[in-house]
Amino acid sequence: MQSTFSGPVYVVGDNIDTDQIIPAQYLNLVPTIAEEYEKLGSFALCGLPDDTNPVRFVQEGRMDTEYPIVIAGRNFGCGSSREHAPIAMGAAECQCVVAESFARIFFRNCVATGELYPIECGDRLCDVFKTGDLATVDIDANTIRHHATNRTYSLKPLGEVRPVVDAGGIFEYARQTGMMPAKAA
């Protein structure tokens, strides 16, 4: 499994709720329908107010983001239980969110769907990084490196969450580990 993610980071603050991750008007899209899954990706994080986030996470007319890493403050993903939130980010090809803390259901939904790694950090990295800075996240070493300064910050280990996301979500994990029978071909 891939254990390092490199690229420009997208930085947000505290309390980014699920309406900002995927505005409610797009919840008419059903994530298990392939083309609607892709469409959700194009709207990822489009609910962020323009004044705090003048650069869009996914550019107008694009389906994927150029930012594989999101860096956030406290309580990322608070609000609704909509699984469309981690799915939209995953569908946009975001790989991981590094946040000071996560809201409970969002964290769980990241793991259940296997869409992206929800990683906690001890430092307030959203004040250290700026959108567009290059970084590398290493989930074996539990670090994030800021390329411009070459400084490395430690991340909290993913623990038991990691193999579930590696597998692609709880159902795949359950099959791989023999908790559920394999799918009939």
Binding site: S80, S81, R82, I105, R108, N109, A112, T113
Partner: peptide, 27 residues
Amino acid sequence: FGTDSHTCMAGAFNQFATGIGNTDAGF
């Protein structure tokens, strides 16, 4: 269990009620 974060409202009736995502709900 409900696929909505405000499922916790039913706690008023002395029950454990919480919101979950689609994947957990499918399970």
